[in-house]
């Protein structure tokens, strides 16, 4: 295994011997991550999502 570096983009060239799956955020994705109106909506969504996970996890106590 070699140490991988962002400078060595050859790893991500399709069809190359060392081609790897690759994902990197676009400028839009980076922008939206700190775009406050969108993040406020996400905050509400995250809390609802967490409540679902919590309620499911804590249901174990009741299921004897």
């Amino acid at each position: 295994m070699e140490e991988k570096s962002v400078k060595d983009l050859n790893e991500y060239v399709p069809y190359s011997k060392e081609a790897r799956s690759f994902m990197s955020p676009t400028k839009y994705s980076v922008f939206i991550r700190t775009f406050i109106p969108w993040q406020l909506a996400k905050f509400v969504y995250y809390n609802l999502k967490m409540l679902f996970v919590l309620s499911k996890g804590h249901g174990q106590f009741l299921d004897k």
Binding site: I32, R33, T34, I36, Q39, L40, K42, F43, Y45, Y46, N47, M50
Partner: peptide
């Protein structure tokens, strides 16, 4: 990933 995660 995002700011909302930090708020949480």
């Amino acid at each position: 990933i995002g700011l909302a995660g930090h708020w949480v």
